[in-house]
Design a protein around this nucleic acid. Sequence first.
DNA 1: CGACTTCTTGAGCGAGCGTTCTAGAATGAC
DNA 2: GTCATTCTAGAACGCTCGCTCAAGAAGTCG
Lengths: 212, 212
Amino acid sequence: MTGMRGRPRGFDRDAALGAAIELFWRRGYEGTSVSELTEAMGIRPGSLYAAFGDKRALFAEVVDTYGRSPVGAFMAEALAEEPTAFGAFARILREAADIYPDPAHPAGCLTISAATNVAVQDAEVEAFLRELRNANVKVFRERLRVACEGGELPGDADVNALAGYFAAVIQGMSQRARDGATREELAQVARMAMGAWSQCGLTDLEEGGGVR
Amino acid sequence: MTGMRGRPRGFDRDAALGAAIELFWRRGYEGTSVSELTEAMGIRPGSLYAAFGDKRALFAEVVDTYGRSPVGAFMAEALAEEPTAFGAFARILREAADIYPDPAHPAGCLTISAATNVAVQDAEVEAFLRELRNANVKVFRERLRVACEGGELPGDADVNALAGYFAAVIQGMSQRARDGATREELAQVARMAMGAWSQCGLTDLEEGGGVR
DNA sequence: CGACTTCTTGAGCGAGCGTTCTAGAATGAC
DNA sequence: GTCATTCTAGAACGCTCGCTCAAGAAGTCG
């Protein structure tokens, strides 16, 4: 009962997982086939299923591992470390503009890209992805609520709308990065997006005529 | 050489196309199988291939038809009809908040949903979808350029960034609608998004310390 | 040394994919 | 009527999918 018994694994599990991350990041959940995975990971299907379960479980582990990586966790870190909500969201947008187009890895955010995928047949995976999306919005909302209670935002600020707004912008930045937007363009988008901060759902700029 | 020869078509082509639109709108390109299509359209595969070509051609026709429909053309109409760029984009956002969550049809924008799909295996379809996305940004950019030349915007306004910004927000609104966001939430998002207008890439709100 | 356990290999499973084929049915032209 | 043409119905094509299985290889145990 000392060392583990049986034939030892013949490949580096972490390296194989890294290859899976890269592949899922680039091509999404359903866009990546098991045979592509086994080829990229350098193993045979039997080994994949023995080491990771099935494709769904592997994807879940990929998302989890990515979320703990420096690139994947930058939002959570900003929300936790910045003293003000304004500082946190400004930093998130600024860093997203740096990270998303970085050629060192596939463009955009793995989580957002995977979660944005609308072609998912598998109902369980679809629910999983929807949870990923809404979890992000929920975290934003919570941070904004704290800002309201702390007095940084007016007590009647619409945290729902602000959270939805930032989620939308960030997701859009990820997609724009995938479509080839440069770091400079994304930085500008980030700067403009923070312009909404001064509004907080208070100002009413309805104008331009009553079409519809 | 008078009437068309051969056995006449036994189904309503427009109605069948409408069913295909509904299906592609809900489930995306790759999420919709030909057998699902034939069932929803009430025809057999042979009839589908005879009338529409193949799945790709059918999808292209779906996108085109949707783009000419009132719901699909609201952006182009706003850009063409509103005298100011501000009015056009404000109207686009306002109408998107109305249309995207409308339960009369699948949530969000067919074009954006389909184009956002990252799981597309077929390289040609992927290129087609990318073009759809970038065409939108391009149209925005052009309208903003006109606004610069007309004096509505400062001549050195960053039309690239503004166009990318609005594209990102609108895409995010479509996705939020698909995730169940209400008309009210989207209307708030739209209002906030227009707050960026006053900036036009001039203001610099870099602050919050030099983390990163 | 076996006995036991675990991993690897490679073939192959059933199901679904997009698509095509064959037969026959329904029309206009002559 | 007969022919050419066009559509319909249904079976089936080849392919890929995610996944499994049987056999053997490579270790730790006693």
